[in-house]
Amino acid sequence: MMKRQAYLGIDIGSISTKGVIIDEKNKILASAYIWTEGDPIGASKKLLHLLEEQFDKEHYQITAAGTTGSARKLVGTMIGAGTVKNEITAHAVGTTSLHPDVRTILEIGGQDSKIILVENGVAVDYAMNTLCAAGTGAFLSSQSKRLGIDVEDFGEIALHSQRPARIAARCTVFAESDLVHKIQMGYAKEDIVAGLCQAVAENYLNNVGKGKKILSPVVFQGGVSKNAGVVSAMKKALGCDILVDENGHLMGALGIAILAGRSGSIQEFDFSAEHAAFQTREVNCGRCPNNCEIICVYRDGKLIDSWGNRCEKGALRAEK
């Protein structure tokens, strides 16, 4: 019996790692969502295990794999992915496959945030936050710790507020001192929480969304879209409805799986990477004054890839 084709997509972000396996019609056959916890290799192994459990190996064979997200290169090497692409393209492809009429994609992740403008199903413009991570998920989770609230409960608490406190959100450091000040002044917790959500939405629109024409339908994604308080603040600020897909967190993984499937190159994937031992090592090249930090990736003790060198002098070849 001929097995049907399936494609694997993994999106390894700074905070969470997401994965899907889809069939040729982009239907999700298996999906998983776990914390990266500063260990992209370990998280990816765990993710592969979770996906393997849900995957129907009798009827399907994975013929293409792709990785995206900030650790795409590392994990791409580790699982031997044929497609390694940036998260902006992956998100645009994933989202438009589910919402073909979307015009604006808002995304706030753990460490970065972006806006993608779409016309006729094609991304036409995008912007990403610059160097600092103000107003992203990392900011919300550090503030929730300060307030002693689980970040998962943040949104619910915010919705109870009648009068959100004004919190300066341009810079995380300023926001934090503003927040402490408001706590000491005696503001109610829900007002502060709602204020933080509002600050995140405003900060996003003023920075990433600056000068961009936000047309509806608007889709909101990324970990922060799970926060009802930010969603409501965003709706208010934009004056239009916002769609939050329950699979919103999987869009990057879905997009890269679709791109891997379309890449045309067939490469059968087994789950062996799950059981192999991977190791990374950082070496300082030292062959010129740039002294590049070169990352070497080993599988079962064998060098499989390296990067980080700015010139040929630092090129290390994989062992065959």
Binding site: K85, E87, I88, A92, V122, Y126, L131, I258, R262
Partner: peptide, 25 residues
């Protein structure tokens, strides 16, 4: 250079998709 590369790569994708008139078809 990762941040810069992500931005340049996605910008290149947008330009080439636009020229082709479709998203990674």
């Amino acid at each position: 250079t990762a941040g810069i590369e992500t931005r340049l790569e996605s910008f290149a994708d947008i330009l080439s998709f636009q020229k082709k008139g479709g998203l990674a078809q």
